[in-house]
Amino acid sequence: MSIQHFRVALIPFFAAFCLPVFAHPETLVKVKDAEDQLGARVGYIELDLNSGKILESFRPEERFPMMSTFKVLLCGAVLSRVDAGQEQLGRRIHYSQNDLVEYSPVTEKHLTDGMTVRELCSAAITMSDNTAANLLLTTIGGPKELTAFLHNMGDHVTRLDRWEPELNEAIPNDERDTTMPAAMATTLRKLLTGELLTLASRQQLIDWMEADKVAGPLLRSALPAGWFIADKSGAGERGSRGIIAALGPDGKPSRIVVIYTTGSQATMDERNRQIAEIGASLIKHW
């Protein structure tokens, strides 16, 4: 067993022997301040990774656009098919120029040779490549099948209805392509620590998230040296922004954090800054 596999296998073990965790309302004060600064709703939840206990939450059962955070769930569904012998990570998928959609920095470079399922998941999570996500959605049967996968996990809230990039439209009061912070946090925890996926697939999923290259201005910008984070960000229309993450000190994750916002007129930089400040408060009061 590799060191990384050992780390993920012992996530519940280490967490069980940690000192009790206590909620700190100071972080919620910052979440509410972010709402004021952005002029928009902000949803927040913080779960203990081992027990699933909610440590703090704000608007945990209000719907927010998922945006690209759905790509972690998508690759979880792909990995479940791999575990069941219905898919192979090494299978190569070929596609054409007509398949390319807006923001496809990886797939646009491989029109000639195609990409493997493993490479597509890596591109979808680490670079948020939209064509990679659409190609992977095709392998599982489309958005409705991802929703069905989530329902089978016990998540009857999260739903995907459309493809990239239309799913980022974020129309107010439109339930399409949305989740709730509580539902997303619980589902992410199941994917990373539950028995739904094999140990190898859980490790692969967290490795992809740990290698995320496009979430630097968010929670990662607030992390002290030595902290662990595996995350996936999302951005959408109407001032929408979000991030889902597993993080913790001492090089291992111990909490799940989900943050979503929508309806702001603020710039992307300002949305990023507010999420980073929430992260800084979380870490300060850990």
Results as ranks from 00 to 15, higher is better:
A266H: 10
A77M: 11
G141A: 06
L192N: 02
V21Y: 05
D155N: 06
M268Y: 09
W286D: 02
T158E: 00
E108Q: 11
G263F: 04
G90I: 11
Y260H: 01
T186V: 14
E102C: 07
L137M: 11
P105I: 07
P165H: 05
R41G: 05
H151T: 12
R273L: 13
L282M: 14
T261N: 03
Y95V: 08
I93F: 06
T126P: 02
A148C: 14
A182F: 15
L136I: 09
P172G: 10
L10H: 06
S51P: 03
R241Y: 02
R81F: 09
M268E: 06
A9M: 14
H285P: 02
T69M: 03
V82I: 10
L28V: 11
D99R: 07
S128R: 00
P20Q: 15
Q203C: 02
E166Q: 14
E145T: 11
R63S: 08
G216A: 10
P20K: 14
T107S: 11
G242W: 00
A132G: 05
I283W: 07
S96M: 10
K190Q: 12
Q86K: 13
K53I: 14
L120D: 00
E62F: 07
N134L: 02
I93M: 03
I125P: 00
S104N: 05
I125S: 03
V42H: 02
L19N: 15
V78T: 07
S240F: 03
G216S: 09
T267G: 14
E175D: 14
N50D: 15
T261V: 12
R255Y: 02
V78M: 09
V101W: 06
R189E: 09
A185E: 00
L79M: 11
L197A: 04
P253G: 08
M115P: 01
P143H: 08
D161P: 01
N168Q: 07
S68Q: 00
A276V: 10
L150K: 00
F64R: 01
L192T: 07
N272Q: 05
E270H: 10
R41I: 09
L247M: 15
R238H: 14
D48Y: 04
E87F: 08
N98F: 15
S96A: 13
R189V: 09
H151Q: 13
I244N: 02
R162K: 07
P181L: 03
A222N: 15
F17T: 11
H285Y: 14
A266Y: 08
L73Q: 05
T27R: 03
I229R: 01
A225E: 14
V42S: 03
T139V: 15
W286P: 03
L188W: 04
P217F: 07
G154Y: 05
N134Q: 05
A225P: 15
R202S: 14
E169L: 13
L111K: 08
N168S: 08
C75N: 02
R271V: 10
T158S: 12
E164F: 00
C75H: 00
P249Y: 05
S68W: 00
I3H: 12
K213R: 12
I275Y: 05
G52C: 04
A148Y: 13
L192S: 05
M153K: 08
T186G: 14
